[in-house]
């Protein structure tokens, strides 16, 4: 894992430090900055050193001090910015995951069991819609419909109302309801479809026949024997999705103005703030790698045949 992160950091370092289309020193200096000023800023940011020295320093900073350097944009330490943004992203992700799984399971199961029924067709049609709708658009529509400031039906807290859980649990919760729903909608749809196809396949397995032959109720057969086996493909996808979302749900965070990692990355990209971009990329990669590890462990937990 360390090695993987090292490789990723080297690649992003190359992309963001060695081959940028804009020179951060020049950005900082402004368009009429004198060559002396630019040189001084370059020196100050360490950009005048050979690339491998810069990289060595960068990695050394991370390894020794968990230091990701300073934002070119705000002069704030990148680590502090990320740590600062993490709670929002975790809040968004965890809530959305819970919500979408809660939605996806019943829909997926009913659709698989009552395949080609009206319920199935409606659910899968709806799911297809939700999957194909861009999250950004979905977010805007949700706000225009249901937010209590700009919505037609003033039900939920709107954009920009997020507060950290430590500040006010109630506000935290109500401000995240709509983002959770929007994020969950597209994911729930995808998971429902995935579960449906996986469960459909599993229900044709011999061991399901065995379970029925044992005289178990249909409920037990489907939930305990069918779903248990059918979640395997979901585990993989879920792990990756969580990893990716922790790396930042850029669009949802943007529409709802939730100050998470995704928005940090988005703002950094807009501002060519390479130190911050690099930091968020590394964090994202870290989360995805960790998610992969967790997926592997979860696999072993779910499927006793898998051993490490």
């Amino acid at each position: 894992m360390g090695v993987l992160l090292l490789i990723i950091s080297a690649i992003t370092f190359l992309i963001f430090y060695a081959l940028p289309s804009t020179d951060p020193a020049q950005l900082r200096a402004g368009r009429s900055g004198s060559p002396e000023l630019i040189a001084s800023i370059r020196h100050n940011l360490g950009l005048d050193k050979p690339i491998y020295v810069q990289y060595y320093r960068y990695v050394k900073g991370i390894v020794l001090h968990f230091d990701f350097g300073f934002s070119y944009q705000t002069d704030a330490p990148v680590r502090q910015q990320i740590v600062d943004r993490l709670p929002a992203t975790i809040s968004l992700t965890v809530g959305a995951v819970i919500l979408w799984l809660t939605l996806a399971f019943p829909v997926g199961i009913v659709s698989a069991v009552k395949r080609r029924s009206l319920v199935d067709r409606a659910a899968m049609g709806g799911a297809l819609l939700a999957i194909s709708a861009p999250v950004y658009w979905l977010g805007l529509v949700a706000l225009y419909l249901f937010s209590n400031d700009i919505g037609q039906f003033k039900i939920f807290d709107g954009a920009g109302t997020y507060v950290p859980i430590s500040q006010n649990v109630g506000t935290w919760f109500s401000s995240l309801l709509l983002p959770w729903m929007v994020l969950a909608a597209s994911f729930a749809a995808f998971y429902a479809r995935l579960l449906r196809s996986s469960l459909t396949e599993v229900l044709h397995e011999d061991y399901i026949r065995t379970a029925r032959a044992k005289g178990l109720s249909e409920r037990t057969v489907i939930l305990r024997h069918g779903v248990r086996a059918a979640i395997l493909p979901l585990v993989t996808v879920l792990g990756l999705d969580i990893g990716i979302l922790l790396g930042g749900a850029i669009l949802t965070e943007s529409v709802f103005n939730i100050p998470g990692i995704g928005r940090l990355a988005y703002d950094a990209i807009k501002a060519s703030d390479y130190a911050t971009i690099q930091g968020t990329v590394l964090f994202g990669a870290f989360f995805i790698i960790v998610a992969n590890l967790i997926v592997d462990i979860a696999y072993a937990v779910v499927d006793p045949r898998v051993r490490y």
Binding site: D206, Y207, R209, T210, A211, R212, A213, K214, G215, A229
Partner: peptide
């Protein structure tokens, strides 16, 4: 009656047992 008075065993014993 299934699994009670009448029970059944199948051809492929591995795939007929729940792997998990």
């Amino acid at each position: 009656i299934r699994g009670g008075a009448i029970s059944m065993i199948f051809q492929d014993p591995l795939s007929s047992l729940h792997p998990f």
